[in-house]
Amino acid sequence: MNWTYKIKNREKNFKNFFLDIFQKKNLFSEIIKKDLKTNFAQSLVGPGYLFLIPFIQALIFNFLLTNVANVNFSGEIPNYLFYLSGFIFWSLFSNGALRGSQGIINNIKLIQQISIPRTIFIISPIIYNFIVFLVSFSIFVAFNIIFILKTDFTISISIRFFIIFPLIAYCIFLSLIYALAVASLSIKYRDIVYANSIIIQILMVISCVLYSSGNLTGYLSYILYINPLTLIAETFRWAWFGSDFGITLNQIISQLIISFALFVFSIKLFLNKDKMMVDLI
């Protein structure tokens, strides 16, 4: 006899993980729509809050570092644009990572009522955040044009711009790793939910968002070997402003290996928890 499917006590494997995503891809748009409509229900600016975040963050750090502390990490680039360029990509990572990692906890009710692959709840906030990023990025471009018109700051159009596309993909990939790992741990240990935003902050400080890789000297330069996030802001500034690129090939290879290993680890962790999710949550 041909059975449609079989339910038993077993762990899903890597193949199931990806199959789940592709077979149910029509669910993403509905879940993202739901999130867009419900996350900001009864608020005036709505998702506007999200794409304003990097601009405000850049403003705060520009004030702290340029006006109060009088330091200059930016070289030729206007200070505000330098910090903004860091935060634009940082928000793509951090908001995706934060919201993705809360996806399971936020959708407990759905998970307990309907049989749907739970990866969807982690991936859809990340896609949602990518849409927010596109809006922020276009505002960033507009800011650049204003700076070019009003000051003597210039950007030379070059082939380097094309590296931005794989960079966006890599950044989303890293936020997926974080979200998968934290979401699966949070099913059992809620501590990580409370620690989540502070972890993101720590990561921000060590990820070249506020300075360039050249400022990491001595022992600190080992960060460039182990933290895959450093590549993002550094590469973006190189591509966009044509600033110095301070990460060596060895460091890039080491970062890529680490991020791939973390990816495999986080999927493994997620699949391990996926089985008992409804009972533990």
Binding site: W3, K6, I7, K8, N9, S115, K275, V278
Partner: peptide, 18 residues
Amino acid sequence: RMVSDITIPTKGEILING
């Protein structure tokens, strides 16, 4: 819940046709 594939059994199996 187990037949609807929301939670999984500790032992045994459910076969579904449809």
